[in-house]
């Protein structure tokens, strides 16, 4: 059975993501997650709301092509993945990813 945990895989914690979170232009918090490649925006929205008990305003997604990888003469790809930028509604508690994921 697919659960919310299958949709949201892990938070993306990078410099870029943290900058986006702390300094989003309109003061709303912007979270970033690695999500299932086939998850839709509404699915992501409800999953984040259920897991973190927050109100989500909007979801934007982007597909990343897996990087090319080569083992000797065999060329392949790392798995492709989808990233979701989740904008929270105004006036939410400051969000911490915590160690939950």
């Amino acid at each position: 059975m697919r659960t919310v945990w299958d949709i949201i895989k892990s938070p993306v914690i990078t410099e870029k993501a943290l900058v986006a979170k702390e300094e989003s232009r309109d003061g709303r918090q912007l979270l970033t997650f690695r999500v299932d490649r086939h998850a839709t925006k509404p699915e992501i929205k409800s999953a984040v709301e259920r897991i973190f008990q927050v109100k989500v305003d909007a979801v934007r997604t982007i597909n990343y092509m897996g990087k090319k990888a080569r083992r000797g003469r065999f060329e392949g790809r790392k798995p492709s993945w989808k990233k979701a930028y989740v904008t929270l509604e105004d006036g939410q508690e400051p969000f911490e990813y915590g160690e939950s994921i």
Binding site: V12, I13, T14, E15, A17, L18
Partner: peptide, 12 residues
């Protein structure tokens, strides 16, 4: 990972 050396924030 995800940060340049020395640029990771304290809590992380």
């Amino acid at each position: 990972p995800g940060f340049r050396r020395g640029h990771a924030p304290r809590n992380i």
